[in-house]
Design a protein around this nucleic acid. Structure first.
Lengths: 342, 342
DNA sequence: ATGAAAGCGCTAACAC
DNA sequence: GTGTTAGCGCTTTCAT
C-alpha cells in the first residue's frame, strides 16, 4: 500500500530539536532536563519528559561526546576466558545500573599493544572513565593515559600511583594464607607454580602472590623448600611440562598454583598419572572459580571477592569523574575456600 | 576574534586542524587521506601521513560519528561466562584486525531488556554495525533494530529474515550426530537435557537441537524413548535436580545435554553418586569447550567451530556495511569430538 | 587535485 | 526560569 516515499517526507531522526519543537521549548531546556541540570521548573520538566517519551528520543552519544560527557565508562579485560572476570563485571554493573552510566567492554587478548589500542579507542570515543582489569601494561603507560581520562585499575599493585586509582585483593596475604594452611596440615615441601613469563610489569598479581609465598615460607622456617616453578607459555605443551615436574624424583609434596587456570589442569594430570590428590600431592589454587567448586575437582582456592572489587572500582571511578583528584588505593582481604585438594 | 590565551595553560588537543596546519594543507585534505578517499596525490598523502605520525594525531570517533562512520562495530554477548564465546571473539578479531574497524563489546547478562538497552546504546554511539551472539530477543525486535543499523546474528535461527544476516551452526544436524553416535554404540534409552526455560524466542539454538534430537530419535525408531528434561533455572538447585533425575528408577541410559554447561556438572554429580560414566550413564555435551577436553572430564561434545562463525559473521557484516542489501544466511556443519564419556 | 565552508546534534555561556 | 547561540572535530558538497 505504501508508495515510494520521497526523502524529504521520510521520518527524520528525532534530535534534540525535534523534541524542543514538539514540546514548544528551546533546545537548551531539553538538554537541561536530560542532564538534570539546575534551573528547570517542574512544569517544563514534565512537558519535556512527555515529549521525549512520545517521540522515543535518544540523545546521540557522539554529539554529546563532542561537548560534554558520554556517560559511558570503558572496561578493559585482559582476555575473556578468565573465570574471575564475570564476577567483576557483575560488581561493576551493580553500581552502574542505578546510575545513568553505561559500560562498554574491550577485550585485550593478553596482548599489550592491543591493550593500548583499545584504551586509545576508548579515549577517542570520549568515554568518561576506564576500569582496567589486570592490565599487562606498565604503570608508567597507565599514568600517561590517566592524564587524558580517569582510570582505576583492578589487579595492578601500585599503591603509590597518584594519577589513577587501584583496587586490589591483598595478594601477598592470599599467598600467605595458602602457605599457612598447608603448613598447618603438616606440609613442608611446598612449591609454587608462578605465571608463565617474568612480566615487564612488576605490579601484576602473580608477582605479589609469589612474594607472599616466599615470605610466608621464610616465616615458617621453610626457606629451604621455597621454589617457584614456571610453566611454558605455550598452552599445548603445558600439560607435558606438568607431567615432567610431577615425575621428578624430588617432586614437591604440595603445590600452590598462582591461578586456578593452572591448578585445575594440574589436578587432572596428577590424577591421570595415578597420583592421589591430596594424599600424594596437595594442590591449592587461586581465584575460587566455578570449576574449582565442582565436586570431582574440589580445588581448595583463594577467594578474592571479585564482585566487591568490581563494585568498589566502579564507585571509585565515578567519584573521580565527579572531580576527586586525590588517589584512592584499596586493598581487600582474601579468604581461603577449603575443599578436598589439600 | 580569538583572545590571547597562554598556550602553556591550555595544552591543546591535536585535531584535524592541527594536522592541517602542520602539513600546510586544508582540513579536507587530511580527512581524505585518513579515509583513503579518492583524489589525493601521493605527495600530499605522504606529507599528511608524516604530520599525523609526528603529532600523534588520533581522529575523534565522536566527531566522526556525527557525519560519517565510526569504523566501530559492536558485539553483543549474552553473558561472559559461556565457554563458547572466546572463540567467536577470536574469529571476529581475525577479520577485523587487518581492516580499519574496531570492535566494542556489550554484555547482556542473559537479560532481554538489558540486551535492548545495549543495542540502543550502540546505535546511539553511531556504530557502523552489530554482531549479536545468541541473542535472547525476538526476531521481530531484531528486525526493528536492523532498520537502524546493519546486524548479523550468530546463533539465531531465522533463515527467512531479510533485514539482517545470520550465521549458525547446523544445530539440528549436531543433535542428530549425537543421537546417531549413541545409537551406533548400542544405546536406546537416550534422553535430552534442554535449556532451562521455554524461551519466547523460538529461534534459539537449544530448540533447534531439541528438534534435531527428536527427529533423529524418530528416524532411529526410538520415539518411545524420546524425552526432553528441563533443569530448573536457578543455578543453586540444579545439581540437586540432576541428582533426583539420576535417582529415578527409569533413569535414562544416555544423556544428551544441550550445552557443556550442563553436561559437565552432570558428569560430576553422576560420578559423585557412584555412577560410572559411561558404563552406567553415557553423557554427551555441546560446544566442545576447553573443560570438556580435560582428561578427567573427557566429555564427548559437538564442536561448532566458533572461530569460523565469528570470522564469517564479521565478513558478512562488513559486506553489508559496504552496501549489500540482500540477506545472507550461513549454516555451518558441526562435528562430533569423541572422548570417554559415551 | 585541493580548499572553503556548511553542517552533524549536542552542551554551556550568556542574554533576557 | 528559559531562550539564543557559538562552537566541539569531523565529513562532505561544491568551488576553484
Amino acid at each position: 500500500m505504501s508508495m515510494d516515499i520521497p526523502k524529504d517526507l521520510r521520518p527524520e531522526r528525532v534530535t534534540i530539536r525535534t523534541v524542543a519543537a514538539d514540546a514548544g521549548v528551546s533546545v537548551a531546556a531539553v538538554s537541561k532536563v536530560m542532564r538534570n541540570a539546575y534551573g528547570v521548573s517542574d512544569a517544563l520538566r514534565l512537558n519535556v519528559t512527555a515529549s521525549i517519551e512520545r517521540l522515543g528520543y535518544r540523545p546521540s552519544v557522539a554529539a554529546r561526546g563532542m561537548r560534554g560527557q558520554t556517560y559511558t565508562i570503558g572496561i578493559l579485560l585482559v582476555d575473556i576466558a578468565n573465570p574471575f572476570l564475570p564476577e567483576v563485571i557483575d560488581g561493576i554493573n551493580d553500581v552502574l545500573d542505578p546510575s545513568n552510566y553505561k559500560a562498554m567492554v574491550g577485550i585485550g587478548l593478553e596482548n599489550v599493544p592491543l591493550e593500548s589500542k583499545l584504551i586509545e579507542q576508548m579515549i577517542d570515543y570520549r568515554m568518561d572513565g576506564l576500569i582496567l582489569v589486570a592490565p599487562r601494561m606498565l604503570g608508567a603507560t597507565m599514568a600517561k593515559f590517566a592524564r587524558q581520562i580517569p582510570i582505576v585499575a583492578i589487579g595492578h599493585h601500585e599503591a603509590t600511583a597518584d594519577s589513577f586509582d587501584t583496587v586490589n585483593s591483598d595478594d601477598e596475604k592470599g599467598a600467605a594464607l595458602v602457605v599457612q594452611s598447608l603448613v598447618a596440615s603438616g606440609y613442608k615441601d611446598i612449591a609454587m607454580i608462578g605465571a608463565y613469563q617474568v612480566n615487564e610489569n612488576e605490579a601484576t598479581v602473580d608477582l605479589k602472590r609469589q612474594a607472599g609465598y616466599i615470605d610466608a615460607m621464610a616465616k615458617a622456617g621453610l626457606s629451604d623448600f621455597s621454589r617457584v616453578i614456571r610453566l611454558p607459555y605455550a598452552k599445548n605443551i603445558r600439560d607435558e611440562a606438568v607431567r615432567t615436574i610431577l615425575t621428578m624424583p624430588n617432586r614437591p609434596r604440595a603445590m600452590f598454583c598462582w591461578s586456578d587456570l593452572d591448578a585445575i589442569p594440574m589436578i587432572n594430570v596428577a590424577r591421570t598419572m595415578g597420583l592421589r590428590v591430596p594424599e600424594d600431592l596437595a594442590i591449592v589454587g587461586y581465584d575460587d572459580s566455578r570449576i574449582a567448586a565442582l565436586p570431582l575437582i574440589g580445588l581448595t582456592s583463594i577467594n578474592q571477592s571479585g564482585r566487591r572489587m568490581g563494585a568498589l572500582s566502579a564507585e571509585t571511578l565515578l567519584s573521580r569523574i565527579a572531580g576527586r583528584t586525590a588517589p584512592n588505593h584499596f586493598l581487600i582481604d582474601p579468604s581461603l575456600t577449603s575443599r578436598t585438594s589439600d
